[in-house]
């Protein structure tokens, strides 16, 4: 079997508060493996450890206990860091604060420039990356002229230009308006279809439900790991209240309580409507 692109083994991490060196636990014995080409969504409330997990994947944070392997190499290994960061690219929550340059195409070039790629090649990569996120026509613009969704797409292009095989997106839509969110999710799906491994950190269940696999985190531990349908089938009443449920799931639950037979694997509006039609 092909080696998974990322393997997380018994990962533990705690933040140190500066004053007094007090430890704040963030991750506790997390074990996970990500096959190449898959689309994994990691969901949890604020404080569940999901962002911390993301930063452990590209060696921004080093494990306190356990290990993270990217294509077989440990993130704790000094010599492997740059290779790992090239393989695992990251897009952050704030669209503004990750753009380095005052011109879109120069910002996308930042990554390959750091890798010492030859100039003509950089040009080619930048153009291709911008085209794959539908931002090529904005390549000469300044970031302050772009919308949030457009800025995030430029950030994604910046990662694509580094030819990363895996893209980790840490709550990329949290600060966007609904149209920006849609733009970014479309691009993410497109990239997944093109073969990239996608790890999407989010707190929107509606986004997580679009992935192949959903990992639910709570207080630093993984409390669920399965397909979206499995999540909603297995989730008990109590858990549903804690998690953010897609509207269709909430409605299905309400209707079930009123006696209608709606199977637990109905998770979209479309699915619910189809099922109701079938009932009649």
């Amino acid at each position: 079997m092909e080696q998974p692109i990322i393997t997380i083994e018994d990962l533990t991490f705690a933040y140190e508060r500066e004053e007094g060196g007090e430890q704040i636990p963030a991750l506790s014995h997390v074990t996970l493996s990500v096959p190449a080409g898959s689309f994994v969504a990691v969901i949890g409330q604020n404080g569940s450890g999901k962002s911390t997990l993301a930063k452990c994947l590209n060696a921004l944070l080093l494990p306190g206990g356990g290990a993270v392997y990217v294509k077989g190499r440990s993130t704790a290994e000094d010599a492997a860091v740059w290779e790992i960061r090239k393989t695992v690219g990251m897009v952050f929550q704030n669209p503004d604060n990750q753009l380095v340059s005052s011109i879109v195409e120069d910002d996308v070039a930042f990554g390959p420039e750091n890798l010492g790629v030859e100039p003509a090649q950089i040009r080619r990569r930048v153009d291709e990356a911008l085209k794959s996120v539908d931002m090529y026509e904005h390549r000469k613009k300044g970031p302050h002229l772009l919308s949030g969704g457009q800025k995030q797409r430029v950030a994604i292009a910046g990662v694509l230009a580094m030819e990363s095989e895996c893209i980790v997106l840490d709550e990329p839509t949290a600060m966007l308006d609904p149209s920006g969110r849609k733009e970014v999710m479309e691009i993410i799906h497109r990239l997944h279809r093109q073969g990239k491994t996608i790890i999407l950190i989010t707190h929107f269940m509606e986004e997580a439900a679009q992935a192949d696999r959903v990992v639910i985190m709570e207080k630093g531990a993984v409390i669920f790991d399965g397909t979206p349908k499995e999540v909603f089938t297995a989730a008990t009443e109590l858990e549903s209240q804690r998690l953010d449920m897609p509207f269709a799931v909430e409605m299905a639950g309400r209707l079930r309580k009123r006696g209608l037979d709606i199977p637990r694997d109905v998770i979209t509006d479309q699915g619910l409507v189809e099922h109701l039609c079938a009932l009649k």
């Binding site: 909430e250 409605m251 009123r258 209608l260 109701l276 009932l279 009649k280």
Partner: peptide
């Protein structure tokens, strides 16, 4: 959602 619930039950 509550209003939707009532209406759907009414029809289905």
């Amino acid at each position: 959602a509550a209003e939707a619930e009532e209406e759907i039950i009414r029809i289905f």
